[in-house]
Write a protein that binds this DNA or RNA. Structure first.
Lengths: 348, 348
DNA sequence: CATAGATGCTAATACGTATTAGCGCGGTGG
DNA sequence: CCACCGCGCTAATACGTATTAGCATCTATG
C-alpha cells in the first residue's frame, strides 16, 4: 500500500490560485463584511481551484480555530450493553437524528465513556465532550454532580427529561408526567374508584417524583390514596397487599410490574379490570411481552428527541434563553384495564 | 450569563507544576520510550495538578496534532427520514455500538450528509469524513465512484456488505448470501422440488448477485430454474406467472414480496406450502406485518456490525491486511413455508 | 499635486496538543 | 582537567483553519 497522499489544504489551494491562505479561507466562508473585500475574479479563481481539487475543509482544524463544529454529542447514562433498555431509548435517538439531519448537524455518540458502578460517567480521564458543540444527556437517572460541573464549565447541554436545578437551571425537554398521571387519577375517580394505590419503583428520579405529584394532587378526593413500592419480581406480594387494602385501582409506575401484576391476578382467577383496575404510567423501559392493552399514557419520545436538539442549538448560540425548559404533553391511552370498581369490593 | 471560563490547557498545568507544556504532554501520554525520560517526582507533580484541576485534553487539538481520534464514523446511504428501513439498520448499529464501546471509541453519525437524488452523498461541499479516524459504510447500494475516491484518498473505511473492487479491494464485512441461498435451494431439491423460480427485485447490488449466484449453482439439477423480477405491489401478476410456469417453489429475494405472494395465494384459496412453497432470502428491510414463519435465513446483522468495527480498526492502524474481507454465515430458518411439491402440479 | 478614502489582499497570529532535536548538568573514565 | 555520556527536561515547530491589523494600490477631491 502506498503512503496516503497528504490531504489538500487551503495552502495548496492558495498556491494554485496564486493567492494567500487567508484569502482562501475568506472565500470559503463567504465573508462579505464591510471590512472584507475580495474581487469577483479572484473569488471565482479560488472557487474554480477548489472545485478542481475537490478540497474540503478539515473540520478538526476548523473547530480548533473557531468555535463551532456542527456536531451534537449524545451521552447515554445507561450502559449500552447488555441492556434491555435500548429499545426504550431508540425513539429518542430517532427524534434526535431527525432533527440533527434537518439542521445539518452530525451526531457524536459517546460510546467510549467508561462505566463505573453501573453508570456511565461524563467526566473521566479522557473526556471528549469538547469534540462537540454541545451535548444531549439521555438516561433515567442523571448525575447531579455532573450537571453541576457542566453548568460551572459553561458547557452547552440539554437533558432529556426534567431535571432539578444543579447550580443553576438545567435546560431540559421532559414529559409532563404530573399532568398525565393527574388526568389518569381523575379519570379513575370519575369511574367511581375511591381506594387508589400508587405502586412506585422506589426511585427518587425527577420523573418518578413528577408522577407522584400528579397522583397526590388528584387523590385528595379519594377515600384512600396510598403509595407503595414494588418490582416485577415481587408481584404476588404486591397483589396480596393491594387486595388486603381493598384497592380498586393501582397506578403502576413500572410497565413490567403492571404486566406481572396482571398475570398474578389472572393466575388467581381474578380479572382486570373486573376485580382490579391497573393503570400504567409510561412506555415499557424494558421489553415485556404482553397482549394486554393497558390504560395509561404515551411518552412522546421522538418529539422529545427532536426538541432536545432544538433547545440545545438555542443554548449553544446563546439565543432563546427563556425557552430552555420544556415539558411536552403525554397522550392518554384508553386501553381496557381501567373499569368501574366492583361494588362488592368497593365498600368493605 | 457570564463569559464561559476558558478551558484548562496543558499550558496552565505546566505553569502550575513548574514545567513546560511539552513535559505535560509527555506525562499525559505515558511516554516512556528510551529517548523520553521524566523523573518520577516530576511526573507525580504533574499528575497531581492534573487531578486537582480536572484537566482533560482537548480531543480536537489532539486530533489536529497527531493522527488519531478514537472516533469511528458511520455513514448511512439510505436517507434516514422518512424511512421504514430504519428498523433494518438498527441491529447493525447495535453491533457497531457494542464493539465501539468495547474498544473505547466514540461513534460519529454523519447525519449532516446531504441527500441528492434520493441517496446520501459522502463527498460534498462540507465533507466531514476526516473528523473520524475511519468510517463504516452502511446501505443497500453503495456508490462505486465514492468507494473509488475513498480508496484513492487512502481514507480508512469498511463496507457492511460485500462490495466489488473499486480501484482496489474494498474492505467489507458481508453476509454469505451465496452459501445461504445455495443451501436453501439444495434443501428444496431434496424435498423433491424440480421447478424453481427465483423472484428477484431487479437489483444489481452485490448482495442480490450473491443470492442469484448461490441459486444458480444449486439449480443445475433442477428441471427448470428461472429468474423473474417482481415487487410486492405486483404480487398477483407474479403469482399468475409462477402458477402458469408450474413453479413449485419460489425463492423470493424481498421479504415484503414474499408476504404479498403468500396472501395473494391465500386469497385464491391456495395454500402455502401445499400448493406453492415460498422461501425468503433475508430479513425484512421494511417492516411487514405477518404471522407466517417463512422458511429462509437470518442475516447476522449485529455480528456484522461488531466485526465491521473490528476490521475498520485493523484498516486504520494498518495491521491485519489479509483479513479485511469477511463473509459471515447466515443461519437457516426452518419455518413452515417449504413443503414437498404437490404431485398433481409437479408433473404437468 | 498632495491628500484622503476606498479597495483588495496578505502577514501574522491564535487555537491546544504531539513530537523531536538538542541543551545543560552531573558523573565517570582516561 | 577534558571528553564523553546518560539523564531530565525545554524550545521550537507542526497540524489546518479563522481572524484581524495593516500594507499597497488606486480613485476622487481640493
Amino acid at each position: 500500500m502506498t503512503a496516503p497522499p497528504r490531504r489538500v489544504t487551503q495552502r495548496d489551494i492558495a498556491r494554485l490560485a496564486g493567492v494567500s491562505q487567508a484569502t482562501v479561507s475568506l472565500v470559503l466562508n463567504n465573508r462579505a463584511d464591510a471590512e472584507i473585500r475580495i474581487a469577483p475574479e479572484t473569488r471565482d479563481r479560488v472557487l474554480r481551484v477548489i472545485a478542481e481539487t475537490g478540497y474540503a475543509a478539515d473540520p478538526v482544524a476548523r473547530r480548533l480555530a473557531s468555535r463551532f463544529n456542527r456536531i451534537i454529542g449524545v451521552f447515554t447514562y445507561e450502559p449500552a450493553f447488555p441492556s434491555g433498555s435500548r429499545d426504550f431509548f431508540h425513539p429518542f435517538l430517532l427524534g434526535i437524528e431527525e432533527y440533527a439531519e434537518r439542521v445539518g448537524c452530525d451526531l457524536l455518540l459517546f460510546t467510549s465513556a467508561p462505566v463505573v458502578d453501573g453508570r456511565r460517567r461524563i467526566f473521566h480521564q479522557d473526556n471528549r465532550l469538547r469534540l462537540a458543540d454541545g451535548c444531549i444527556l439521555l438516561g433515567r437517572e442523571v448525575d447531579g454532580a455532573e450537571l453541576h460541573r457542566l453548568n460551572r464549565d459553561g458547557y452547552p447541554y440539554v437533558a432529556v427529561g426534567r431535571r432539578d436545578d444543579a447550580g443553576g437551571p438545567v435546560p431540559y425537554v421532559g414529559a409532563d408526567y404530573a399532568t398525565a398521571v393527574n388526568r389518569l387519577a381523575e379519570l379513575a375517580l370519575r369511574h367511581g374508584h375511591r381506594r387508589l394505590t400508587y405502586v412506585g419503583m422506589g426511585s427518587t428520579a425527577e420523573s418518578s417524583e413528577d408522577r407522584r405529584r400528579g397522583y397526590q394532587a388528584a387523590a385528595t378526593t379519594a377515600e384512600s390514596a396510598r403509595q407503595v413500592s414494588a418490582v416485577a419480581e415481587d408481584a404476588d406480594a404486591c397483589l396480596d397487599d393491594l387486595l388486603a387494602d381493598g384497592t380498586t385501582v393501582a397506578f403502576v409506575e413500572d410497565f413490567a410490574t403492571a404486566v406481572a401484576l396482571e398475570s398474578a391476578a389472572r393466575r388467581r382467577g381474578l380479572t382486570v379490570p373486573g376485580d382490579l383496575s391497573i393503570v400504567t404510567l409510561g412506555d415499557p423501559t424494558v421489553p415485556v411481552p404482553t397482549d394486554i392493552a393497558f390504560t395509561g399514557f404515551l411518552i412522546p419520545r421522538e418529539e422529545m428527541g427532536r426538541q432536545s436538539v432544538e433547545v440545545l442549538t438555542g443554548v449553544i448560540d446563546g439565543s432563546a434563553a427563556g425557552l430552555q425548559q420544556r415539558l411536552l404533553p403525554c397522550e392518554l391511552v384508553e386501553g381496557n384495564t381501567l373499569g368501574t370498581p366492583d361494588p362488592a369490593v368497593d365498600r368493605r
